[in-house]
Amino acid sequence: MRRTLVVMLKEPRAGRVKTRLGRDIGMVAAAWWFRHQVRGLLRQIEDPRWDVVLAVAPDRSGLLSRVWPAHMARIPQGNGDLGDRMGRALRGAPPGAVCVIGGDIPGITARHIAEAFAALGAHDAVFGPAPDGGYWLIGLRRTRAIPPCLFSGVRWSTSHALADTQMSLPDHSIAHVATLRDVDTVADLK
Rank of each mutant, 00 (worst) to 15 (best):
V56I: 10
A57N: 03
P58A: 08
D59K: 03
S61K: 13
S61E: 11
L63E: 08
L63H: 15
L64D: 02
L64Q: 15
L64P: 00
S65M: 15
R66S: 12
R66K: 13
V67E: 12
V67S: 05
W68S: 00
W68R: 08
P69E: 07
P69I: 13
P69W: 04
A70E: 12
A70H: 12
H71D: 09
H71R: 15
M72T: 05
M72A: 09
A73Y: 04
R74Y: 12
R74E: 13
I75K: 01
I75G: 00
P76L: 05
Q77V: 09
Q77E: 10
Q77Y: 01
G78N: 08
G78K: 06
G78Y: 13
G78M: 15
N79V: 03
N79C: 06
G80V: 07
D81Q: 15
D81T: 05
D81I: 04
L82H: 06
L82Q: 07
G83D: 10
D84I: 09
D84E: 14
R85A: 08
R85C: 06
M86N: 06
M86D: 02
G87N: 07
G87I: 00
G87D: 04
A89S: 13
A89L: 06
L90Q: 09
R91P: 04
G92T: 04
G92D: 06
A93P: 15
P94D: 15
P94F: 09
G96H: 14
G96V: 13
V98F: 05
V98H: 07
V98E: 13
I101Q: 03
G102Y: 05
G102F: 02
G103M: 13
G103K: 05
G103P: 04
I105Y: 01
P106E: 03
P106T: 02
P106R: 09
I108T: 14
I108K: 00
A110R: 07
A110L: 04
A110Q: 03
R111A: 07
R111D: 11
H112A: 03
E115P: 00
A116P: 08
A116S: 14
F117M: 04
A119L: 01
A119W: 07
A119H: 05
G121P: 00
G121A: 13
A122T: 10
A122K: 05
H123G: 04
D124V: 14
V126I: 08
V126Y: 02
F127L: 03
G128A: 14
P129R: 05
A130C: 14
D132G: 02
G133M: 07
G134M: 09
G134L: 01
Y135H: 08
W136I: 02
W136A: 02
I138Y: 00
G139F: 12
G139Q: 08
G139H: 12
L140I: 11
L140F: 06
R141A: 08
R141E: 02
R142K: 04
T143P: 00
R144Q: 08
R144G: 04
R144I: 09
R144W: 14
A145Y: 12
P147Q: 11
P148W: 15
L150S: 02
S152P: 09
S152C: 09
G153E: 11
V154C: 08
V154N: 10
V154E: 08
V154M: 13
R155E: 06
W156L: 02
W156C: 00
T158H: 12
S159G: 14
S159E: 15
S159F: 10
S159K: 10
L162M: 08
L162H: 14
L162R: 15
A163H: 09
D164S: 09
T165R: 01
T165G: 11
Q166K: 14
M167D: 10
M167I: 05
